[in-house]
């Protein structure tokens, strides 16, 4: 009984290790081919549109409501300490350093990451990836590298949009609805927010772009059979990407503090 449990545990650990190893090799291969010309600019632009442009609306909506909720919560919390004037910097720092990169990455994962995994999965099932290989075209170069580069470009851009919209959302609630002076909101923000707060957030979002495109492409590339296989691959891609984003965010935050 104990031996049986131990054996099952061992097998499970080995399969996890094998899967993790496979993912690392997949990323390594993609990164290797990313440095080998020709560089597929048209494909990269297509992917930026797929990952970024088509996620803009959802990012604007999420950013606006996040900023507004932050404005509302922080205003009343800060008022308890007589520190309403700190609303601007509090919102800006929360968004720039944490919420902007993380929430925008999670939203893009939900919209574009799942679509990426499903698209590549369907390409695998309908033999389109085999067709690429049969035409002597490396699928890593044609599919994975453009997605990876597009993710590294689109994610920080989405984060920037999220941050700007979020700050204006906080302004709308704090200044226009709750009566804080507009000068206080902007001036305190200017005093307390450093360039490093912005760049740290953007570094995070670049790494989230790598994580999401890597995980989602991998899950799609090695999808199971049929509709169930693609559905499972898509779900796993979104769940694993989201967990990795949060874990990696904590790790980076602890380094950047």
């Amino acid at each position: 009984m104990i031996l049986e449990t131990l054996r099952e545990l061992g097998q499970y650990s080995l399969s996890l290790l094998r899967a993790a190893g496979g993912m690392v090799v997949f990323l390594g291969t993609t990164v290797f081919w990313a440095f080998i010309p020709p560089f597929r600019l048209r494909q990269i632009i297509r992917r930026i549109s797929f990952i970024g442009v088509k996620s803009t609306l959802i990012i604007i909506l999420t950013g606006a409501f996040t900023g507004m909720a932050l404005g509302l919560q922080l205003f009343y919390t800060l008022r308890r300490f007589g520190a309403e004037s700190m609303l601007g910097p509090a919102i800006a720092l929360s968004l720039l350093r944490e919420l902007g990169p993380v929430l925008s990455a999670l939203m893009v994962t939900g919209r574009a990451g799942s679509a990426l995994a499903a698209e590549i999965g369907i390409m695998r099932l309908s033999e389109q990836i085999d067709a690429l290989e049969a035409m002597a075209i490396n699928p890593y170069r044609y599919l994975m590298v453009p997605s990876l580069i597009a993710g590294m470009i689109a994610f920080p851009l989405m984060t920037c949009i999220f941050n700007v919209v979020g700050i204006y959302g906080g302004y709308l609630v704090g200044v226009k609805m709750l009566g804080l002076g507009p000068g206080v909101y902007w001036v305190e923000m200017e005093h307390l927010v450093d360039l490093r707060d912005i760049t740290d957030g953007l570094y995070k979002s670049v790494s989230f772009g790598v994580i999401v495109t890597w995980v989602c492409s991998y899950k799609g590339f090695f999808t199971g059979y049929g509709a169930e296989g693609v559905s499972k691959a898509t779900t796993e891609a979104v769940v694993l990407s989201s967990v990795l984003i949060l874990a990696w965010d904590y790790f980076l935050s602890s380094l950047m503090v």
Partner: peptide, 13 residues
């Protein structure tokens, strides 16, 4: 080589 796949394997995009 040239390869004609069972379902055609045309690129959807």
């Amino acid at each position: 080589f040239g390869f004609l796949f069972q379902g055609g394997a045309l690129f959807d995009s």
